[in-house]
């Protein structure tokens, strides 16, 4: 192929880093955004597209797309459900909870005793607090039915204001 160089050969990591800096605020809203980036970075449009494709393949980019303001599209209730789960079962239960269609993120995180006993975090987005709470109840019922004594406590933290949402900003 006519590719001038590959990531492993020369400067690919540096080009990736500069691509992150150039696009962390967003993709240019012009007819040929990859050509605009190439112009800015002093490489070819084909290289920009190749590097983006490679970063998508490696997982360095999750996806290229739109990030909606959840409130604006009707998901007005954003509940962070948190669970105090037996350490021996938290990974297995996390897999089950993440697989529920209405859970948008699911992570295991460390407890901060004594203030914070919860080690499993699962985000629920819904049109109302009632709907979100009903979904949290579904999660509780699922855990209880399959792992009767694994969950010691849970809570839901609703967001009441977005204070900042700029996304990643590397210097």
């Amino acid at each position: 192929m006519s590719r001038p160089r590959t990531n492993a050969e020369a400067g690919g990591d540096e080009l990736d880093r500069r691509l992150v800096l150039a696009t962390q605020g967003g993709l240019p809203l012009v007819p040929r955004p990859y050509a605009a980036l190439a112009n800015q970075l002093g490489c070819t449009e084909a290289e920009v597209r190749e590097r983006l494709a490679a970063m998508l393949a490696s997982g360095a980019i999750r996806r290229i797309g739109a990030v909606p303001n959840h409130y604006a599209i009707g998901y007005t209730a954003n509940g962070m459900s948190v669970w105090d789960i037996d350490d021996a079962l938290v990974d297995e239960i996390g897999e089950h909870v993440g697989a529920l269609g209405f859970i948008t993120h699911c992570y295991r995180r460390p407890r901060q005793l004594p203030d914070w006993p919860y080690n499993l975090f699962a985000m629920v987005h819904a049109g109302s607090r009632e709907a979100a709470l009903a979904r949290v109840d579904e999660v509780a019922a699922l855990i209880h039915s399959r792992f009767p004594h694994a969950c010691r406590a849970h809570d839901v933290l609703f967001s009441t204001a977005i204070l900042k949402k700029t996304g990643l900003r590397l210097l």
Binding site: T23, G25, A60, A66, V67, A72, I73, G167, L168
Partner: peptide, 22 residues
């Protein structure tokens, strides 16, 4: 897209990086 970003219906449009991988 310009208008959706301007009016904050979208918070962002572009690549979503997993910087742990970088």
């Amino acid at each position: 897209l310009n208008s959706l970003l301007e009016d904050r219906v979208l918070t962002r449009f572009g690549p979503m990086f997993q910087i742990e991988r970088m």
